[in-house]
Design a binder for these strands. Structure first.
Lengths: 218, 218
DNA sequence: ACGTGTGAACCGATTCACAGCA
DNA sequence: TGCTGTGAATCGGTTCACACGT
């Protein structure tokens, strides 16, 4: 995480980026309420984030506020979209069209943020050629060809765990640089490819632990 | 996070618990390969975790290894299942049976770990009474009654964002102590209820950022 | 006067390094 | 000897507190 151009200091955590997404959502609802200017303490009120954290997170990318005043809402939205890179559309490949995969294909949450699943792959003969929404399911054999042709850089793996690692390797070979993995296995790839593992069972186990202890979690 | 009985020191992070899930998965595949004893460095090889981290995580709950030897695989599996609390079955209520909700109903990853969705709620008249798998969709109006009767402590929210907070409040009123929230809003509840927010669009945005920068993420 | 931007202080989590035991 | 268990050292992220600009 060195050499980030826009950053003034070299040090921001991946938590900073997660929170920027959070701020962005909040800012959009604020904008919908026709509020034009907001202070760091007002926006962080309901977000489990301190005002100082908010200001510091933004400070890594520049000073977007006015001292004594606050932040211009619509301007800040633009800036954060810029930082996150969602001011342009991103094409996403989906691998595995079982229940979860199909659900993700129809998930409105992605399109809202310029993230668009443009192709879906499966290995089951009876599925290939079928449509889910307006996306046609493609034979997994054509994965590399299609991804290269469409110049896709990000992919979602929603396959059974047994084949997830294999799929990941194929995706990387096809030029994919970011993978969101829903299969409950830890997949490993080149250092220059980013993987985000979303292990839902593990999240639930986590919950069980804290529920069982009757404990407070942050 | 004070007063944890089994813990020797008072200090383990929620990261520790997440990693215990990870270790558990790995241990199970190791067991499937008929390996009986394993060292901290062998098991952490492919997990992005240091051996010291592994040992320290376990040390919060007791000493399960043999010096000079390593850890007994099946014994450690039992111990971790014990710590996590998944040695008993946990009933889970599902709220919202759209695409994502239905997908979760059929998700095999949960049942493997003693996590069982036993009831599903929706507010759409045409869905109520229908079955998904062997679970009947129940009118949301009966949420509190059913959850209390079945003595359910955990719930999954898979509704549109507009109603998620309202649902969360109802769940808490019904006695739910742990909530996994898939709706892309930040929901707030009593301090004694645990919420795990899974924001998939935000995860993807995160990925976009690091892909765009051509950066390495941990 | 008010709220931002930020170096410094703080705090918690990870890693180190080694004593202790099989 | 080899690997665990753990206090001590380190590292990195969060919070503090205040100078600065409006």
């Amino acid at each position: 995480m060195k050499d980030i151009k826009k950053a003034k200091k070299v040090q921001f955590s991946s938590g900073t980026i997660k929170r920027l997404s959070l701020y962005l959502r909040k800012l959009k609802t604020i904008q919908d309420n026709n509020v034009n200017v907001i202070s760091s303490s007002a926006i962080t009120q309901l977000l489990n984030v301190t005002p100082a954290q908010f200001r510091k997170d933004l400070s890594y990318f520049g000073g977007f506020g006015k001292r004594g005043v606050g932040y211009n809402v619509s301007l800040l939205i633009k800036e954060i979209e810029d930082i996150l890179g969602i001011n342009q559309e991103w094409k996403i490949a989906l691998v595995g069209t079982g229940k979860l995969g199909s659900a993700l294909l129809g998930f409105e949450g992605f399109s809202k943020f310029n993230l668009k699943i443009t192709c879906a792959f499966d290995n089951q003969k009876n599925k290939i050629g079928e449509n889910i929404g307006n996306i046609k399911i493609i034979d997994i054999k054509n994965l590399e060809k299609i991804i290269k042709k469409q110049n896709i850089k990000m992919a979602i793996i929603a396959t059974p765990p047994e084949v997830a690692q294999n799929m990941a390797s194929q995706l990387v070979k096809a030029g994919i640089k970011g993978i969101m993995n829903f299969a409950p296995v830890f997949i490993t790839v080149n250092k220059n490819v980013v993987v985000s593992n979303i292990d839902m069972a593990s999240e639930l186990e986590n919950l069980v632990f804290f529920v069982k202890r009757g404990e407070l979690k942050t």
